[in-house]
Simulated scan of single mutants.
Amino acid sequence: MVQEIDKLTDNVNDIKSLFRTLNETLESIEKRLSRLEKMDSIEHRVEVNQIDLSDIKESLQRIEETHSNEIQHINRRLDSHLVKIAKIEEEMIIIKSR
Rank of each mutant, 00 (worst) to 15 (best):
I63D: 12
E90C: 04
I51D: 03
Q72E: 14
L22P: 00
R76L: 04
N11W: 02
E58M: 10
E91V: 09
D10A: 14
H73G: 05
K96Q: 07
D10E: 12
D55P: 00
K57I: 03
E65G: 09
D40E: 11
I63K: 08
E27L: 14
I88H: 02
K7G: 07
E65K: 10
I51N: 06
V2M: 07
K84N: 09
E47M: 10
E58G: 07
L36H: 05
V83H: 02
E30G: 10
L53P: 00
S97R: 09
M92T: 04
T66M: 06
A86D: 11
I95M: 03
R98S: 10
K87R: 08
S80A: 14
K57R: 13
L60G: 03
K31R: 06
R76V: 00
N13W: 00
K16R: 11
Q3R: 06
L22N: 15
E47L: 15
N11I: 06
K16A: 15
T21C: 08
I42V: 15
E30W: 01
E65A: 14
A86H: 03
Q3T: 07
K16P: 00
I5Q: 11
S41C: 08
D40Y: 05
R20S: 15
R45I: 01
I15E: 11
N69A: 14
I74F: 01
L26S: 06
